[in-house]
């Protein structure tokens, strides 16, 4: 039975879960999407613990509101929408917290990746540091642009899927991706042009 389920498409699995409350189908979907969602939320928020919680919450929401999924939509876009909304809520919560907090210990602002004097070219050649710098640059991009850039360039989703997830027109998605990339390009000039 399980082998058969693993061969099913996402939409078929959720149908199975909706109709027969098959936990195995739910578990397969969780297995399929936990890592992509983790990657997406991590690139969006830059905090692993928060991302784990968000993905867990996404899966819980999926479990509790399975009937709100309509078969005409793609399962991947539906689950990405849930995760994206939770990630955006977390971002808002953080902003509120940083306003209320007397001591703003936001790492994003303290690291100046554009300043080449701080990080030498030798160090920037190191892969881990490079990745860290790219991640930090990504976190500096406006959230509306960041989301679409991540979905497109990191998650590899199509423009149509991104438009469905973000509830935007394809044109808007394209322009936002373009703007996001331009912002990133300005910040990462010294890194990838070697």
């Amino acid at each position: 039975m399980n082998r058969k389920l693993t061969e099913l498409q996402d939409e078929e699995l959720i149908k199975e879960f909706q109709d027969h409350n098959t936990i195995a189908a739910y578990e397969i979907l969780v297995k399929r999407y936990k890592d992509p969602l983790m990657n997406f939320t991590y690139r969006f928020l830059g905090d692993k613990d928060a991302c784990t919680d968000i993905v867990q919450e996404t899966m819980i929401k999926f479990y509790l509101n399975k009937d709100s999924y309509k078969s005409f939509a793609k399962f991947s876009t539906w689950i990405y929408t849930i995760a994206g909304n939770l990630a955006k809520n977390e971002l808002k919560r953080r902003k509120r917290r940083s306003i209320l907090s007397l001591f703003n210990d936001d790492d994003e602002k303290s690291l100046q990746i554009e300043d080449k004097n701080i990080i030498s070219p030798e160090r920037s050649a190191d892969g881990e540091i490079k990745n860290k710098m790219i991640q930090d640059a990504l976190l500096k991009v406006k959230p509306v642009y960041r989301e679409v850039v991540i979905l497109r360039d990191i998650q590899g989703l199509s423009y149509e899927e991104i438009a469905e997830i973000t509830e935007l027109s394809i044109g808007t998605v394209k322009s936002r991706i373009n703007r996001g990339r331009t912002q990133l390009q300005k910040m990462l000039k010294g890194i990838y042009k070697e």
Binding site: D35, R43, D153, Y192
Partner: peptide, 18 residues
């Protein structure tokens, strides 16, 4: 230039769930 950015971003390591 944007292709380069796309390449850089797609080359980032994947983060997996615990």
């Amino acid at each position: 230039a944007h292709e380069e950015i796309s390449r850089v971003l797609s080359g980032l390591p994947k983060i997996n769930a615990p």
